[in-house]
């Protein structure tokens, strides 16, 4: 965990639903894709957690959706705005157990944290297969960025307006050695149940602190209570207890 002041470089809509925020500042606190940043949004008391998408030593990006007052306020912040940010939070994904043919499955905003993972896999000589799922064509996010990495993602849209009609699970008949997923919890569950391989799932949670102090984001696992912010947000598939 690092605390620092970051400057908004870019804050723009990617499409009708999702936005990209690029922040300048010492980003060496990030050590793994799937970690997150916790941003103090002016006018709000609690920090807001967002998975890192891409990062270099002096900047990082994230994809976010306006879901409440905090993220709506975030959307209004222009280039040059300074923000107090905690970086390098959470465990992130590990390539351990990825095997020869990892499959990355992202839904909605979740395509952001998997982008950093895809980059890291490519650096390690692994070429992941990628499935990106959205409700409709107008909400497709980061597709060109994945393509620019040399990958050929399969896109699913629930309304069939682009790619495979249906959900990400309708495109999962791809042989794979491991599965990595980030997206809404029902999607994570469906992906985990459908894939015979081992894998890692990245969870979202309403957090207090973001660094393990308040026990606000605990979920029950096969290994006992675990904090999404500190012990996660990435958990091994086998650790998760699914609530009915």
């Amino acid at each position: 965990m690092r605390q620092g002041i970051f400057t908004v470089r870019e804050n723009r809509a990617l499409n009708a639903r999702y936005n990209l925020l690029a922040l300048e500042g010492d980003s060496t606190g990030f050590t793994a894709p799937g970690q997150f940043a916790d941003i103090l949004v002016p006018g709000f008391y609690l920090r807001r957690p967002f998975a890192v998408c891409d990062w270099e030593d002096d900047f990082f990006t994230l994809v976010y959706e306006c879901v409440g007052n905090g993220t709506r306020r975030l959307k209004t912040l222009g280039a040059g705005t300074e923000l107090d940010v905690l970086t390098g939070l959470g465990n992130g994904y590990t390539l351990e157990g990825a095997g020869e043919s990892p499959l990355l499955v992202g839904g909605g905003c979740g395509v952001g944290s998997l982008y950093g993972l895809a980059k890291q896999m490519l650096r390690q000589g692994l070429t992941p297969r990628v499935i990106l799922g959205f409700p409709r064509r107008e909400e497709i996010t980061l597709l060109e960025d994945y393509i620019a990495l040399g990958l050929s993602p399969t896109v699913t849209t629930a309304d069939g307006s682009f790619g495979v009609r249906g959900l990400v699970t309708d495109a999962m008949d791809i042989p794979h050695s491991s599965v990595y997923a980030c997206g809404p919890e029902p999607m994570l569950r469906a992906v985990a149940l459908m894939s015979p391989a081992g894998g890692q799932l990245s969870f979202d949670a309403r957090m207090g602190c973001g660094f393990g102090a308040c026990m606000g984001c605990t979920r029950q696992t096969v290994n006992g209570p675990r904090r999404v912010c500190k012990d996660g947000p990435v958990f091994r598939k086998e650790e998760i207890l699914w609530e009915d």
Binding site: Y45, L46, G70, A205, R206, G208, C217
Partner: peptide, 8 residues
């Protein structure tokens, strides 16, 4: 969960 909410 959720166990946490923003106040004023």
């Amino acid at each position: 969960a959720p166990r946490i909410a923003e106040g004023c």
